[in-house]
Write a protein that binds this DNA or RNA. Structure first.
Ligand SMILES: NC(=O)c1ccc[n+]([C@@H]2O[C@H](COP(=O)([O-])OP(=O)(O)OC[C@H]3O[C@@H](n4cnc5c(N)ncnc54)[C@H](O)[C@@H]3O)[C@@H](O)[C@H]2O)c1
Ligand SMILES: NC(=O)c1ccc[n+]([C@@H]2O[C@H](COP(=O)([O-])OP(=O)(O)OC[C@H]3O[C@@H](n4cnc5c(N)ncnc54)[C@H](O)[C@@H]3O)[C@@H](O)[C@H]2O)c1
Lengths: 249, 249
DNA sequence: AAGAGCTTGTGAACGGGAGAACAAAATCCG
DNA sequence: CGGATTTTGTTCTCCCGTTCACAAGCTCTT
């Protein structure tokens, strides 16, 4: 949510408009999508792709895509398109995926186990470096080839394995205290799966993945669709419509 | 991504500014957060809460929060705040959580099993109505009290259990064909966990949950942090900085 | 070698959302 | 009963992101 560095426009008079280095947050969120599409194309042996091609496979408007890519530099060739392998590397470099990021997972329940067993991490620049739980009965269990350690060892693990990203899969009630411990241990990025708002000091990034929220957003639209479908036009007062839809399941 | 109905501003001259019924998408995405906070407060026996209180527990700016709530109607009392239980119900009604939404999960691998076993669904307005896989070896297994059925039975299950929301947890390669089957079966909302872009006809909503993308966004910021930390000021060319950070892990 | 045909990169217009600020309403208190 | 206080609902402004549109630049053909 809160950008870490001041990527803002340079207030100094030096009108070096050549966008110093502030890649918009919205663009950053799309770079991984482009990266995936490019990897796919590379696997298929495609050498070059136009912005229209990429737009088709990523579902992103081609103009937006070009503008996004232009923040990284001028890596395309007019009249031709983008060199798939070259662009793929440039994006990977920008995101920092030329190195492997060690990740610690906290809370080896249903979800934590699934994530620990997930092979897709490794192929995308991340490595499960440590698993941690506060349930001593779980300590020693293995998931994806990594053993579970106790929460008390967190500081040590983070330090010696140089972890800077933590994945939080504990119950909601434990989220804030665990987040505090992660921060104290030196973790500066947290991916939070627990349905809880956690607050962290400035300089620490938190991203939230919340299944229920996603479903509820779908439900909101679904409700509108049901209502719209159960009658012809849509010029009625929606309160009535909602009431009707809720009433008859 | 693509809104279903035309919530856009009415181009007709009727300046009925009283925002007919278009709740902004950004607001819809926050309503579940408010709902959760209100449920929490209600459990603690809190009767009323001001926008500042809610802002504190949800992490949302209080002005934004008030504006969001104002789209639903005037449910607050000036000088007092919002009645927790009343507001909670109003939001639940708006999202459609006064009814239970039956959900089908496709692909009972690591992730699908974790979701099927997850108890948090039921308490948030959703019910796992069916589990489907195309691996006959999995058919008959039970997760969270629901048995796995074969993909061939999808149409029947969706119809007879009145499912309109599908959760897609198959490998990426199967995502598009499975999505097509879901749509054909009558599902009109899909929550996609597979790292693949799926295209669906208009009228069908898709939301994507992509773990790797979230991690990659964190990695992007992490890289910038590492670079900024490994040197004093930040007036160097970033290409060099990135190269240095990448070079020394 | 020059023109035709693409495709990129970007300037400019536009729309939506975020946040500050304030007037309107309700309660509290003397 | 009236003014002080609190908190909502809303208006206004600003900023970010999206989209359009097109000139610049590259390749291919003739
Ligand atoms: N399972 C799902 O599909 C799913 C879906 C959406 C959200 N979530 C959320 O993800 C989180 C985990 O879900 P789950 O189903 O895996 O829960 P779970 O109860 O199966 O697992 C929680 C794990 O966290 C451990 N734990 C508890 N307190 C801890 C602490 N203080 N420090 C370290 N470890 C601790 C427990 O020992 C347990 O192993 C929950 O917040 C849940 O709401 C889960
Ligand atoms: N496991 C994770 O933690 C995790 C994390 C992020 C993303 N994902 C993504 O979620 C998806 C599932 O991951 P997983 O680890 O559970 O994989 P998995 O291989 O363990 O499970 C996939 C399941 O889907 C079933 N399946 C395959 N093709 C099917 C089809 N056409 N129709 C119905 N079912 C089919 C398989 O039989 C299997 O049971 C993948 O796309 C993965 O990339 C998983």
């Amino acid at each position: 949510m809160k950008p870490v560095s001041n990527h803002g426009p340079d207030p100094s008079g030096s009108s070096e408009d050549r966008a110093g280095r502030g890649i918009p947050e919205a663009t950053v969120a799309r770079l991984p999508i482009y990266l995936r599409a490019l990897t796919l194309l590379a696997e298929r042996g495609v050498a070059t792709a136009s912005s229209e091609d990429l737009a088709a496979t990523t579902g992103v408007n081609s103009a937006k895509l070009r503008k996004d890519l232009s923040y990284l530099g001028s890596y395309g060739t007019r009249g031709v398109g983008y060199d798939v392998e070259y662009l793929r590397y440039q994006i990977a470099r920008e995101i920092g995926l030329t190195q492997d990021w060690p990740v610690v997972i906290i809370g080896l329940g249903n979800l934590g186990q699934a994530l620990a067993n997930y092979a897709g991490f490794g192929t995308r620049g991340f490595r499960v470096a440590a698993l941690v739980d506060n349930d001593r009965a779980r300590v020693g269990e293995m998931y994806g080839g990594v053993g579970v350690r106790h929460l008390d060892e967190l500081d040590e693990l983070v330090r010696e394995r140089d972890v800077s990203i933590g994945v939080l899969t504990t119950p909601a009630a434990a989220a804030q205290p665990v987040a505090d411990r992660l921060v104290r241990a030196g973790v500066t990025s947290i991916l939070n799966f627990a349905p809880a708002v956690i607050s962290v000091p400035a300089g620490v990034d938190v991203r939230k993945v919340d299944l229920s929220i996603e479903l509820q957003i779908l439900a909101y639209h679904e409700l509108r669709k049901q209502v719209a479908g159960s009658m012809g036009a849509a010029t009625l007062d929606l309160d009535d419509m909602v009431a009707r839809a809720v009433g008859s399941p």
